[in-house]
């Protein structure tokens, strides 16, 4: 887009801004990519009272686990839109060929994706937590955990998506690849709520989730880049 006008190479900052803008525009123009994972999230969470029991005591016991597991699945379902259309129209190749560092491009791409899919999911969570009768003091640890955890899940999911984008059907395979690797985020995130409900401070677990986020931010783009080069090949 912006690149076509000038012959000179863009600076890294400008090209990253362009990538972010492009990513946000693409997602905004296909609202289904934003809305469908959220709808999945709401519907799947509301299946638990229907399939299990509807009394508040039982629900509040499983609320944190249900919300975290469903959020994980919703994030994974939303990954499909991250590389798929870019792969099909060839712009992924252009991204890999561009002179600016691929690492930051990928990071920005995932950031844009998270802003429009992960963040709304976090913002929607209090409503679902209320429907599952989560005790009041557990709202902050749940939201903070999701805020730290969903970008990590997005980055891990992006590795899986990058590995499978060249395949015709990748849905179930993506789940098989990504779900085992997402377990630490799930354990610590849902653990934050449980420790709060047991009357203990959750800051330690939040710090671990933050550390996981820092680690995936620094390492995942390398794996995503290597995987994309294989897929585009």
């Amino acid at each position: 887009m912006n690149l076509s006008g000038s012959r000179q190479t863009l600076g890294t900052g400008a090209s990253l801004a362009a990538t972010l803008q492009r990513e946000l525009l693409i997602i905004l123009r296909s609202p289904g990519d934003i809305v469908n994972p959220l709808m999945f999230y709401v519907i799947a969470v509301s299946l638990f009272p229907l399939g299990g029991q509807a009394d508040a005591e039982w629900l509040s016991g499983i609320a944190a686990g249900v919300i975290w597991v469903t959020a994980l699945l919703a994030v994974m379902l939303s990954m499909e839109s991250l590389f798929r259309s870019d792969y099909e129209d060839g712009s992924l190749e252009q991204l890999l060929l561009s002179p600016q560092p691929l690492y930051f491009h990928l990071l920005v791409k995932v950031l844009g994706h998270w802003l429009l899919t992960g963040l709304p999911l976090v913002l929607l969570t209090p409503v679902l937590a209320m429907m599952l009768a989560l005790p009041g003091e557990a709202y902050w640890p749940l939201l903070l955990g999701l805020l730290l955890g969903t970008p990590t899940l997005n980055l891990i999911g992006a590795i899986g998506m990058a590995l499978t984008v060249g395949l015709k059907r990748s849905g179930v395979l993506l789940a098989v690849l990504v779900l085992p690797l997402s377990i630490p985020v799930l354990v610590f995130g849902s653990g934050m709520v449980q420790t709060t409900l047991n009357g203990l401070p959750y800051t330690g677990l939040a710090a671990v989730l933050g550390a996981l986020l820092v680690m995936t931010v620094s390492l995942a783009p390398l794996a995503i880049g290597a995987a994309l080069r294989i897929s585009v090949n």
Binding site: I159, L177, L181, P184, L212, L219, A223, A226
Partner: peptide, 22 residues
């Protein structure tokens, strides 16, 4: 692709191990 996933697993498996230990 399998090699990349194997190496991602190397980074992740110790974390998974300690996450469930705690």
């Amino acid at each position: 692709a399998a090699s990349v996933l194997t190496l991602v697993g190397v980074v992740n498996l110790p974390i998974i191990h300690y996450s469930v230990v705690w």
